[in-house]
Design a protein around this nucleic acid. Sequence first.
DNA 1: CGCTCTATTGAGACTTGTCAATTATGGTGG
DNA 2: CCACCATAATTGACAAGTCTCAATAGAGCG
Lengths: 241, 241
Amino acid sequence: MSDIARLVLKLSARDAINAEEEQALSEAAGGTSTYEPGEEIVREGVPQTLSRLLVEGIVARMKLMADGRRQITELHIPGDFVDLHSFLLKRLDHDVVAVTRVRLLNFPHEGLRRITESRPHLTRLLWLNTVLDGAGHREWIVSAGRRTAIEHLANLFCELLVRYRVVEMSDGRSCPLPLTQQQLADACGLTPVHVNRVVQDLRADGLIEWRGGELVVADFDRLAALGQFDPAFLNLVREPR
Amino acid sequence: MSDIARLVLKLSARDAINAEEEQALSEAAGGTSTYEPGEEIVREGVPQTLSRLLVEGIVARMKLMADGRRQITELHIPGDFVDLHSFLLKRLDHDVVAVTRVRLLNFPHEGLRRITESRPHLTRLLWLNTVLDGAGHREWIVSAGRRTAIEHLANLFCELLVRYRVVEMSDGRSCPLPLTQQQLADACGLTPVHVNRVVQDLRADGLIEWRGGELVVADFDRLAALGQFDPAFLNLVREPR
DNA sequence: CGCTCTATTGAGACTTGTCAATTATGGTGG
DNA sequence: CCACCATAATTGACAAGTCTCAATAGAGCG
């Protein structure tokens, strides 16, 4: 499976991408890098000259506060650019850290710039990619602002399951979830203690199973109802962009 | 003052934009529309064929939940596109509503598409605009997830003050804030009752004054410290994009 | 000069956080 | 293969921040 295969799946779920564009993407890519769990991939505020596509593993975007509080603002799975926005921002407003062992494919900004100079449609697809991040962020704002802890977790699990499905890493019933409860807490703005209790409730209600880094959604409909999960924000509509 | 003047100020704070590009933007614009307070400008899920630039007033992006809970995911001030992302998404994942009486300048997607076909740099500036929204969203996720109510409000007030300053609608000490406490509550994921108490605390501490839709930040440094406000996420660095 | 919307206040409930201890789990060296 | 270690998960008791419900006061507007 090529390094950009899951990105192509992700894009194909929203618009047609032709072989020539796929080729242009491949040509814009540089080498790959590997990071160990917990390693920092990008530090907030440091000028960047390339963006990274996640090929394998899980990556978190994390904001750190001076007193040690931390908030994960997005979780990335294979096929996601973890910092395509650095192409425009130059410096990130957050850290990017490896959750598991990960492999990343580098896209020098120079090559991305060339795409914007010569390939309007591919440019729009990349732009779309960053705009999808924004839609994801909005859903997380709602979860953090207006959902209870159990609704928040339920919503997040649904989101991950569907996103894994798009890149063909889930059959729609189970997906990887190799996170600690601490990391889940940082993603949801909760304490690990409370996450633990809520996860146990979800298990007791027969909604999920979760062991050995694998999440099994036993009853998607009920989990989605609990978390008010609506996949609309993922924009899974194939149409010209 | 031209309808795109504040957008140009906003972009100019991040990169040089030349007269020709400014002209191209003007030409991409269609007519203006006006909405009354509370009016819905864009409904979630409805296909869009144009994007809107806010010229006057305040607009909220709002997510509604089935049971009536609501969360504002972004507050827009003049110079902001309220739904530039609809150019790529086609349908929005949220409503766009007028908070005050507002005037909007329409940008048909057709014209934006023409820009992407012929003006790579201007395209990147528009892309940057949506990416800045994303950075704002991330800050809001942190506020909702990890900040206390008083920190959250303090942070939001600092953000608005600085953003108004960029578009030259603030002297750095005061800015418009014609919101109800209910709307502020919806932006912060709190109840209006609690917002009321926190606002009173901020007043009692001599950090802000707020009457008649005008916010006066009496002690910005202390307010910023309380809210851990760091303008870095606004990316106010003028450099080639 | 009412009327309606918004702001304010109080009392009590509830979700989530804090602190601290205990148990489980997975990897490692002997 | 087993004991050991560090990390992660789990549990309990209690505190705290925010919410809920309800009432009152204030402000803008026709």
